[in-house]
Write a protein that binds this DNA or RNA. Structure first.
Length: 109
RNA sequence: CGAGCGGACUACGCGGUCGCGGCGCGCCAUGUGCGCGAUGAGGAAAGUCCGGGCAUCGCAGGGCAGGACGCCUGAUAACGUCAGGUGAAGGCGACUUCAAGGAAAGUGCAACAGAAAUAGACCGCCCGCCGAAUCCCCGGUCUCGGGGUGCCCACAGGGAACACCUGCGGCGGCGGGUAAGGAUGGAAAGGCGAGGCAAGAGCUCACCGACGGGACGGUAACGCCCCGUGCCAUGUAAACCCCGUCCGAUGCAAGUUUGGGUUCCGUUCACACAGGGCUGCCCGUCCGAACGGAACCGUGAAUAACGCUGGAGCCCAUCGGCGACGGUGGGCGUAGAUAAAUGACCGCGCUCGACAGAACCCGGCUUACAGGUCCGGUCGGAUC
RNA sequence: GCGCGAGUCGCCUAGCGGUAUGGCGUCAGCUUCCCAAGCUGAUUCCGGCGGGUUCGACUCCCGUCUCGCGCU
């Protein structure tokens, strides 16, 4: 099962317009229900140079991929990390799980 | 052994599980799919500072403007790059650094200090004349008037004399000569020594430097030697500029294909000198259309495909060359994304892992960088 | 990706080869019963950073850092 990325600028604008927002310590999430599980990460130039940005995107994708199988309701997600000096995989993975439970999107309470 | 110099290379490794990009093959039978296989960032991929390829502008032509470069010879597709030399500067040395043409083509600038700044004469030195020279104040304004200070000193000779005359010297004034010396400065009209002179001065001479000419060596920059000229001309051209060489513009968001069809309406400029393109301007040259709105069918539209990676390619051997590099032969197939691919976890090892992520492609430059490996010189110390 | 521009006092600026100008601010004094306003004086920058050219660089040249803008 693949998780599809969002690509077009219009899709991002639509998500930001209709989606619900949820927050955790290391990142924010915008989501709305859709037919399949889709996601994107938002990492602009303010997060650093290309090496730092690529590293951040890899960590977010890996954390999302680890938590996604527990989802019950298929949605489209935008992952927006908070700016920091150090980014950790374990913190992203934990906070994504926290948000899923808080928004009642997964089976295990 | 210590210190230092130059060059080349490398950029954590191995195993396992789950994932990512495009590619190939297979399957389910077309979707926003599944499986297998090999493959997948750099020495700087960076900054975008130069040079090219490639593409479009009809051709890429001439001139002006503008820009870049600047010792010589070579390498190269080209370069502001590289190699080998020359010169200058630094270092005991290995070696390093240098935008290194022209200042008698012209213009500009040179603060402060200093007597004087691109030329000059304040002091000084010397010669001549003078001692009612001269200096100060007020008025006037360029011919001056009034008031005050002031009739120099020492020595020698003549002389009755402290008068007066003469002489040497000092002090002061005026006129002239001079550019040796003078607190400065980045720079003071070649330097230094001797002769010469009233005092001085390339005025004269030796040496060094500079300039001009010639011979020799070198492809050349240049080196070296000889002869001549007493020497005139500060610095700055990364100030304007002059000389020589080179440069058409725009850049893959270039550009090509699809991006619809029919009907109607409107605007602009034309049927030769107006408009538009090539170019910032001129010459020259080319073109007949361009744009906007409405209705119906159709519709993925900053999209899709191409450009997009086989190229001045990389590696090895050999030959030519001091070298950059070139020739020949053999081998290799090596990212191609587009919200944009290398990660997470576990185990082991060690020196505990820096700077950092392709976006059309190459050649350089510059900048960032934890360490590690190899090679070749140098200096110092000790021992033999 | 490609092409441009700017960094001067705590803030905003001027100047563009000769040790940096003005305003706001801050501090002190005068004025007032006190405050504000006003007046007077003082304080503050060695020029984003590193080299080079020059006697001398904020200024000219090169490199670098940061910030900003344009092209779809």
């Amino acid at each position: 099962m693949k998780y599809l990325p969002l690509k077009k600028k219009k899709e991002f604008q639509r998500a930001l317009k209709v989606g619900k927002r949820a927050y955790a310590a290391t990142l924010s999430v915008v989501y709305f229900p859709s037919e399949r599980i889709r996601y994107a990460v938002c990492v602009g130039k303010k997060y650093g140079k290309s090496v730092q940005r690529n590293r951040l995107k890899r960590l977010l994708r890996e954390a999302f991929r680890a938590q996604a199988p527990s989802l019950e309701v298929p949605c489209t997600f935008l992952l927006i990390p908070k700016i920091s000096d150090r980014y950790a995989y374990s913190a992203f993975r934990r906070d994504i799980g926290v948000i899923f439970r808080k928004e009642k999107l997964c089976r295990n309470p």
